[in-house]
């Protein structure tokens, strides 16, 4: 009878005692950097050389947070009678992180691997306008992009790597 009456009381004490005697799970953030999992999405970095202003990322972004301005530059023909080449040059590539929802669509869609994820997360600002990162700032994030993760055991590598290795093998063979 007593046991039936006091069980809740006993359990309360037991649970709290267990918690007291075990190490607490609190992460001591500013003193200890968090242990982020691989492929963490912190901030998007831009590799300008790869970008051709195809506008795929700006068009596919569900939040419309990417703004791109570019102009065509003419590269004169290399040989006489040859065709002039034209190249897109980026004037402006802004990502507004106050709107960005970190869905990763822009990075998946970019055909030229110009956008990459970086695990950096500490870029809070005091002014909303400062949350729009321009081209130069997006370039600086590239320094924090980690190398590509190791493949999971038993996974296939991407088709572009298969093609590369085939080409290398052919070249070596030659």
């Amino acid at each position: 009878m007593v046991k039936a009456y006091g069980r809740g009381l006993w359990q309360g004490l037991r649970v709290t005692w267990r918690n007291l005697t075990r190490r607490s799970v609190t992460a001591h953030y500013p003193d200890v950097e968090p242990d982020l999992p691989p492929r963490s999405r912190g901030v998007i970095a831009l590799q300008e050389e790869n970008c051709t202003s195809c506008m795929l990322c700006a068009r596919e972004c569900p939040s419309w947070c990417i703004t791109i301005d570019s102009h065509k530059e003419v590269i004169p023909a290399a040989t006489d009678g040859g065709r002039d080449r034209s190249q897109n040059v980026l004037d402006r590539f802004d990502i507004d992180y106050s709107i960005c929802m970190y869905c990763s669509i822009c990075i998946e869609v970019c055909p030229f691997d110009a956008l990459h994820w970086s695990p950096e997360f500490a870029y809070a600002e005091g002014d909303l306008k400062d949350l729009t990162h321009d081209m130069n700032r997006l370039r600086t994030w590239m320094d924090t992009v980690p190398p590509p993760q190791a493949l999971d055991p038993g996974a296939e590598q991407g088709k572009e790597l298969d093609a590369y290795e085939r080409t290398r093998a052919t070249e070596e063979g030659l």
């Binding site: 709290t16 918690n19 007291l20 607490s24 799970v25 609190t26």
Partner: peptide, 13 residues
């Protein structure tokens, strides 16, 4: 401190 550790946190540090 005791209340914090009983609640699996650390309290004032």
């Amino acid at each position: 401190k005791a209340m914090a550790h009983m609640q699996a946190r650390v309290g004032p540090m």
